[in-house]
Write a protein that binds this DNA or RNA. Structure first.
Lengths: 157, 157
DNA sequence: TCGGCTTCGTTAAGCGACTTATTTAACCGC
DNA sequence: GCGGTTAAATAAGTCGCTTAACGAAGCCGA
């Protein structure tokens, strides 16, 4: 079974990396200001992660990078794209002006929720085939494996 | 919890995508002919997947692509690299000469097992913290989610 | 037996998400 | 003030994947 998992994990990783199903764009545009998503908009998993991370309130670029397990430049890039599309805004932390605080742009909270909803729907469809215990076990295993392969988001180093 | 999973999955994907810990190269070289892994060798998750897929016997490039969930050119590329390093060999299927059958190169079966062992070790460390039921549930959830992401829910192109 | 369709693998071109190395700006202890 | 440190941004490059297009081989109806 272990081999099966090793074989399956990268498959999941690749599926996950694919641009989120096209219907998403339409669904988002429907509820967003026209300028927010120009013709070429497409949302990557990283962008969704940023939006989820922001759901708990504004946070710094560095914190985003740490949460997502990527380098700071990568986080900067994600924030760049999202802010180009008007989804989020940067502002300086008044207490430490080196820090750039990232937060939803006004009115975008709702749109963000819808974007996250797409992935959540997919995931729920899969989780529904599992019992509650299995779902919890899956989550537990996911955390363990992520930790085993690298660092876990919440953990300090 | 669903959001947590959505947040965690891409992290896992990225960790998974990182070049396998460097110790691997050394460990592999130790048991492999010198020419097999020249100075710049590095093994990606895709390569490991190919080696695992071959454990069940020779198979075609197309089959590898399907198993890994990638395009055929991508599979070709993976096979290219592995065969450059002498890990695997191509030969034509006598029954259908369009088909290219891929298999371990002579004596490489053992080396392949060692390479796979690295990932397996990491994974086992994580799975050991789970009960048997949880491990099975994780595997089940993994399959379900991979399947769920594989096709767009409710949309056929 | 010949054209036309399909399938397999490869080649070519390009893209997107990441990395490291470097730069700029702001905080801090002395 | 002056070094040292840290946050974010910029620059350059890498890697794994994609689509498009191609040659070769099998399949098949006329």
């Amino acid at each position: 079974m272990v081999d099966e998992i090793v074989l399956l994990l990268p498959v999941l990783g690749r599926e996950l990396g694919r641009p989120v199903p096209l219907e998403l764009e339409a669904s988002v545009k429907a509820g967003a200001p026209a300028h927010a998503f120009p013709s070429d908009a497409h949302v990557s998993p990283g962008h969704i992660q940023v939006l989820i991370a922001l759901a708990k309130g504004p946070c710094s670029v560095g914190h985003i990078a740490h949460t997502l397990g990527v380098s700071r430049p990568a986080a900067t890039q994600l924030v760049d794209r999202l802010s180009e599309h008007g989804m989020i805004e940067r502002r300086h932390d008044p207490e430490d002006r080196r820090v750039v605080l990232v937060d939803y742009a006004p009115g975008m909270h709702e749109v963000a929720r819808r974007i996250m909803g797409v992935r959540r729907t997919q995931l729920n469809a899969a989780l529904d085939t599992l019992t509650d215990e299995e779902a919890v076990a899956f989550y537990k295993g996911l955390k363990e494996i992520t930790a085993a392969l690298g660092r876990v988001p919440g953990e300090e180093n």
